[in-house]
Simulated assay, not measured.
Amino acid sequence: MTDNASNANPAEYLAFTLGKEEYGIDIQKVSEIRNYETPTRIANAPEFVKGVINLRGLIVPIVDMRIRFALGTPEYGPFTVVIILNIGNRTVGMVVDAVSDVTTLTPEQIKAAPDMGSTLNTEYIVGLGTIDERMLILVDIDRLMSSEEMGLIEKMAA
């Protein structure tokens, strides 16, 4: 199943780290990158939803991706950031350990994702981007954030 013309042309990905792994998301989904600030906790929210922040009058849910991907206890340090995303008609923030750079990948640099077991459902993985010795796990952030278990964004019409 192909998304759009992105399979024919190079695409830009924002690279970020969670633990020892490097991930990438479509740069077009990113509206800004902010320093981490402790969000206001919401009662009965899933563990991976750290809470909400007030972003210029807009209440934005904040998802900790380390908790979401079961990558151990998150530690918030000087490089911890919140990537503000525009998904459908919603704004969502995701906490990551650090942001690396913006990388352009050609279709030839993107390989199919192997089955990774139960840690990360591969339905949220676009593929693996390879740049020299570097490997980015490319996440379909639309699909992940609109998934039923996230409960953050209504399913978008196909």
Rank of each mutant, 00 (worst) to 15 (best):
S6A: 08
T38F: 10
D142F: 06
G129A: 12
I42G: 04
S118T: 10
V96W: 01
P10Q: 05
E32I: 02
S118D: 07
I27S: 00
S31Y: 02
E123Y: 09
V30P: 07
P107R: 01
G19F: 12
T103A: 07
V30W: 04
T91W: 03
L120N: 12
A113Q: 06
D132T: 01
N89D: 15
A43N: 10
M135H: 11
V95H: 06
R90H: 03
D115R: 10
K111P: 00
F79E: 14
T122S: 05
V49K: 06
N89H: 15
D3M: 11
A11S: 15
S147H: 00
L58N: 14
V126W: 11
S118A: 11
K111H: 14
D101S: 14
I141S: 14
V96I: 00
N35K: 11
N9Q: 11
G127F: 11
T17S: 11
N121E: 08
I131M: 09
V99E: 03
I27Y: 03
T106L: 07
A112H: 13
M65T: 05
Y13I: 15
A43I: 15
I125A: 02
S100R: 14
F69Y: 10
P61F: 09
L138C: 01
I67R: 02
V49C: 13
N44G: 03
L120V: 15
A45H: 08
M94T: 11
G88I: 14
V102R: 10
I110V: 15
I141D: 02
T73H: 15
Q28L: 13
N9W: 13
L105I: 15
E22L: 06
Y13S: 14
L105N: 08
F69T: 10
T2M: 06
R143T: 12
G151Q: 07
E133Y: 02
G117N: 02
D140R: 15
T73L: 12
L58K: 15
T106V: 10
F48P: 07
S147A: 13
D26A: 14
K50D: 06
I141E: 01
K29D: 07
Y13Q: 03
K155Q: 09
E32G: 14
V82S: 10
T40N: 08
A157K: 08
I67P: 04
E123N: 00
I59F: 07
R90E: 03
I67F: 00
V139E: 00
V82K: 01
L144N: 06
V96A: 00
G93L: 12
N54L: 12
A70K: 12
D26W: 13
E123A: 02
V102P: 06
K50A: 05
V63W: 01
V52P: 01
I83Y: 00
T103M: 12
R68T: 05
A158P: 07
T119V: 13
G93R: 13
G57N: 05
G117D: 02
V92H: 06
F48Q: 04
S100L: 11
V81T: 10
I33C: 01
V52W: 03
D3R: 12
V99C: 01
E75F: 05
